[in-house]
Amino acid sequence: MSYKSHNDRELTDLLKSDDRLAYTEIYNRYHAALYIHAFKRLQSREECKDIVHELFTVLWIKRQEIDFKTTLSGYLYTSVRNKIFDLLAKQKLKVSYTQSIQQFAETGLVTTDHLVRQNQLKALIDQEIANLPERTRQIFELSRKKFLSHQEIAKELDLSEQTVKSTVNNALKVLRIKFGSLLFLSL
């Protein structure tokens, strides 16, 4: 069955019913255009690849939850635009945070500004953790905030240890994409 003949509405309906081929067709149809759209604004190949890859990862993970209030293309382009805005805001925060660390290293003084930035970064990280799918977030928080082992989490949630391990690793990958090395400094 050729998915190229399906319109976007049909593809989104198929996507919501877990059709991987519909997802593949959506990816093939839009990934290059979304990359170009992002590149016009960011001028960074790696960041654009990351944004588009993350968008399609979230699209698959949240396929049944997403409410396409506009067209599929409208949803995708708006998502890319929002991810670009998020990235630019985070880059600005990273620069500010880095300057604060540099100032501290040079002067040896802890400033209120530094503490504010630290709180802002923590809030961003908490927000991104809250944006994870519910089950992933639950497992991640048990691991990182309550310091339970994979075995303890598996027992508590009636899951296999491998499921817990892969879920934590996947959550870390998503967060690593968003925050890079700053995530590990704060966690």
Rank of each mutant, 00 (worst) to 15 (best):
F184I: 08
Y27L: 12
Y30P: 10
H31W: 02
I51M: 03
Y35C: 07
H150F: 00
A154P: 02
F147N: 12
L72A: 11
K69T: 14
Y35M: 08
L159Y: 05
N119L: 03
T98R: 14
L172A: 08
L15P: 04
L172R: 10
L93R: 05
V116R: 02
H37W: 09
L185G: 14
K178H: 09
S17V: 05
A32G: 13
W60M: 02
D50Q: 14
K155A: 13
L183I: 06
N169A: 11
L183M: 06
Q151F: 00
A38N: 08
L185N: 10
K90Q: 14
V168C: 04
I84V: 09
N169Q: 13
V116W: 00
Y75N: 13
D158H: 04
Q43I: 05
T107Q: 09
T12Q: 08
E161M: 07
A22L: 06
V116M: 02
L124Q: 15
Q151A: 11
M1P: 03
R81M: 07
R117W: 00
S79I: 00
S44C: 07
I101L: 13
K146E: 12
P133A: 15
L121Q: 09
N82T: 13
Y30C: 09
L159G: 09
I177D: 13
E156D: 07
E25H: 02
R20H: 04
L93P: 04
Y75M: 10
L142E: 03
Q64Y: 00
R45N: 15
E106F: 00
E65W: 01
A130K: 03
F104A: 11
S181R: 08
R176W: 01
A32R: 11
L88T: 11
E141W: 00
I61D: 07
V110E: 08
S5Y: 00
E65R: 11
L42M: 10
S2I: 05
S79H: 07
P133I: 11
K94Y: 13
L14A: 15
D13V: 06
Q103P: 02
T163I: 01
E141N: 06
A33C: 06
I36T: 15
I84L: 04
G74L: 07
V168W: 02
K49R: 15
T78M: 07
I153Q: 03
T57M: 05
K69I: 14
D113R: 10
F68R: 04
D18M: 01
V164I: 01
L87Y: 12
S96A: 10
G108L: 06
G180T: 10
K4D: 09
K40H: 07
I125P: 05
Y30V: 08
T71I: 05
S44G: 05
V52G: 12
S149K: 03
V168N: 01
Q138Y: 00
E128M: 07
F147H: 13
E65M: 11
A105P: 00
I36S: 13
G108Q: 09
E54I: 04
A171M: 03
Q120S: 13
T57S: 13
I139Q: 03
F184R: 10
S160F: 00
L109H: 11
D67S: 11
V168I: 05
F179D: 12
S96W: 00
K145R: 07
A33E: 12
Q127R: 15
L76T: 12
D67A: 13
H37V: 08
A22T: 10
A154V: 04
E156V: 06
K49I: 15
A171C: 03
K155T: 12
E47M: 08
